[in-house]
Amino acid sequence: MIRQLRQGFSKIYRGWGRRLGIGLPYIWLIIFFLLPFLIVLKISLSEPVLSQPPYSALTTFSDSMLQIKLNLSNYLLVSEDELYLDALMNSLKVALVSTLLCLLLGYPMAYTIATVQQRWRHILLMMIILPFWTSFLIRVYAWIGILKPQGILNNLLLSLGIIDEPLTILHTQLAVYIGIVYSYLPFMVLPLYANLAKLNQNLLEAAADLGARPVTSFLRITLPLSLPGIIAGSMLVFIPAVGEFVIPDLLGGPDSLMVGKLMWTEFFSNKDWPLASALALTILIILVVPFIAMQRLHQRYEDRDS
């Protein structure tokens, strides 16, 4: 009886259930990714005008003539003007360095959490997640209070006699790195932890039995096996960090030229929505390529595992 029921359910599941299961993510992607993408693509091919909305229509219909006018000059400007290339390269650099810093800090943290006793594990995980209960924006503002010339850090160092005059950290590139690493560290730690917690301890014991020293067994067993976690964590840090706007705007100095900020300028100061859209799509393309590459790499590891 139960077996029959189960078979019946699985049939239904294979039919409509499966379609729904597969369809939902697609509908989600179409509404929240494809449609906005097409709107941005449309704007990027128009011209800025003084009206509401501030860009021209792509199609005009008059005298029974449907005209489609595509303006490619925005993409030309983005590719020709070294300012945009500079901003893009700087954003990639900042994101890459931040990702590496997050990895260096996050790996030992995740490793510790995955190896301590169960009850400590929960407390430590809680401590990683706890900051999310406060708004991201307020946490970044808190860093202004910590890093500013008359701020907590400088006052502490001054009162301890370590420095004689306040350090200039706020509004420098260093402050941007501090902000990004601080904000994105949990996104590195959590996937790494999930991966390291699954690590088969028998392998390490076997390695030890066969005479491998801890360093060797870490480098040859733990590290390679945790690669999917490293990749997942790195993507979660790298991709949002490239387009990051709030942190460089609040903590960074004027020379922390990042593409998110540049887009803001084009959109707000210049009222040039088409150029801002072209810039947004350029970033998207630049991000999608490594994303797909990473995905492939990830897939290969998964396949090898199974």
Partner: peptide
Amino acid sequence: SDKEIRDVNRLWTRIKANR
């Protein structure tokens, strides 16, 4: 004109970014 505003703004972005 819009063009004059954009030209000055892009000049300004460059100055701020030290490029």
